[in-house]
């Protein structure tokens, strides 16, 4: 490499071949830089490759990851150095000197087709394993814990109790605070990942706090053809809030609901437990006024 001068080298070294590292490498490579991608594992992909869905959007992990892996794999400007680790770094910005140890893999990457037969027939170890980090006890306020435990005491059994428990908790707290869910996981010995997956799947459970009053605009078909979208827009405008959020003063949550089965009186909205039929835009300020 060039000795200490002011001239900067047009190459970048990315450490770690997870989804972040891959994206960084791709962006840089597309920008015209030569990229060295160093990964300590035998393949790029990282932790995301082991996941089914990713928090909080529940996006399919492989769908996010696979295109990036393929792109990295074939990119002219990216030189991958897998099963390698950094030993030392010297120099300064624009002029680093890095020593990388490439470990012996005893497999000729040129010839390997990735068939996996070697793993199958290995006598030493061929069991998939994931490191389980230990978990600290849940930090939760005493009175909240009592309320949660009261509900948990009502149920016993396997995973079929999760939905009823979440229903009760959601009614008790009006949403599902993280520490509450962690407490459920701890007491009922159900992995928190599973609970989160269930809690985020159903519309009835909220992972965000709610306003004092919950306005739900029915967007069932009958209400839709009779003007529900405009009703929703008007609420959003009057309350200055996005659909799905709470107003700044915490008074109102604005949501949609897929049909409350009151189609004969469409368009319909509900505020807390009250149902209003034949709603039009002009009466919306009055409805809001009733609850403030």
């Amino acid at each position: 490499m060039i000795q200490a001068t002011d001239k900067k080298v047009g190459a970048v070294l990315v450490v770690g071949g997870g989804v972040g590292g891959m994206q960084a490498s791709l962006d840089l490579a597309e920008g015209g830089y030569k990229v060295y991608l160093v990964e300590k594992g035998p393949s790029i992909g990282g932790v995301m490759a082991q996941l089914d869905k990713t928090f909080p959007t529940n996006d399919c992990a492989m769908c996010t990851l696979a295109p990036r892996m393929v792109d990295c794999g074939g990119h002219m400007n990216i030189e991958k150095m897998t099963y390698s680790e950094i030993e030392s770094i010297e120099g300064s910005a624009g002029n680093f000197k890095v020593r990388v140890r490439k470990k012996a893999r005893y497999v000729d990457p040129e010839k390997c087709t990735g068939c996996g037969d070697c793993v199958e027939s290995c006598l030493v170890r061929n069991i998939v394993y994931i490191d389980q980090p230990g978990r600290a006890p849940v930090q939760i306020e005493e009175d909240v814990r009592v309320r949660v435990d009261d509900i948990l005491d009502r149920y016993s059994g396997g995973r079929e109790i999760i939905v009823p428990i979440l229903h009760d908790l959601n009614e008790e707290f009006r949403w599902l605070p993280p520490e509450v869910l962690c407490r459920v996981a701890e007491v009922k010995e159900i992995p928190i990942e599973h609970i989160l997956r269930i809690a985020s799947f159903y519309n009835a459970f909220s992972l965000k706090p709610k306003g004092k009053n919950i306005i739900r605009v029915c967007t069932g078909t009958a209400c839709y053809v009779k003007g529900a979208p405009r009703i929703l827009d008007t609420f959003a405008r009057e309350l200055k809030v996005e659909v799905g959020d709470i107003t700044d003063d915490g008074q109102f949550s604005l949501e949609t609901v897929n049909c409350v089965g009151c189609c004969g009186q469409s368009p319909v909205i509900t505020v807390n437990e009250d149902i209003f039929g034949y709603v039009n835009q002009a009466m919306i300020p009055d409805v809001i006024g009733k609850y403030t």
């Binding site: 079929e160 939905v163 269930i198 799947f201 519309n203 009835a204 897929n258």
Partner: peptide
Amino acid sequence: RGAGAFVCGETTALVASIEGKP
């Protein structure tokens, strides 16, 4: 009690829901 997921009307999803699976 269902929890507001349309897909639960599909029978295989409905039983999964009762079983406490996604």
